[in-house]
């Protein structure tokens, strides 16, 4: 299997989860020019990101080419238990897509 373009790191506190997500993608807006050939670099950016928590869609994001290269995002979910499934998938304007699943980790014990 090829390596996924999505990295997810999540932490749980109580029933609240912080989901950090980093996607490897050029996010070409279509407005940039190739300096040598003076031609526009064709647009290639993620249009939609969907996050599912145990098959329930909890977040959908629509993006433009204005989101930075290798986009990073953080969001918070409530009602999450350790062992729950988080699935993030994206589709870009050329139809390319990818998805990753991650199991919620057990919360770290507090240090005294």
């Amino acid at each position: 299997m090829t390596k996924s373009s999505i990295k997810i790191r999540s932490t749980i506190k109580g029933d609240e989860a912080k989901v950090k997500c980093l996607i490897k993608h050029p996010m070409e807006s279509g407005l940039r020019k190739n300096k040598k050939t003076k031609k526009l670099i064709p647009a290639k950016f993620i249009q939609e990101v969907v996050c599912k928590h145990n098959d329930k869609t909890v977040m959908t994001a629509q993006w433009n080419g204005t989101v930075s290269t290798n986009p990073y995002m953080v969001f918070y979910l409530t009602g999450v238990k350790a062992g729950d499934m988080i699935k993030i998938s994206w589709v870009d304007n050329t139809g390319q897509n990818d998805s990753t699943e991650e199991v919620m980790p057990t919360p770290k014990k507090k240090k005294k």
Binding site: K56, Q62, V67, S68, T69, P71, F75, Y76, L77
Partner: peptide, 23 residues
């Protein structure tokens, strides 16, 4: 040039905090 960068649609179980990087 294209002002709208991103829209995040949240469900009831998602908290109203979002971080992202933009150009």
């Amino acid at each position: 040039n294209m002002p709208l960068a991103a829209t995040f649609n949240l469900s009831k179980t998602t908290k109203g905090t979002v971080t992202t990087r933009v150009k």
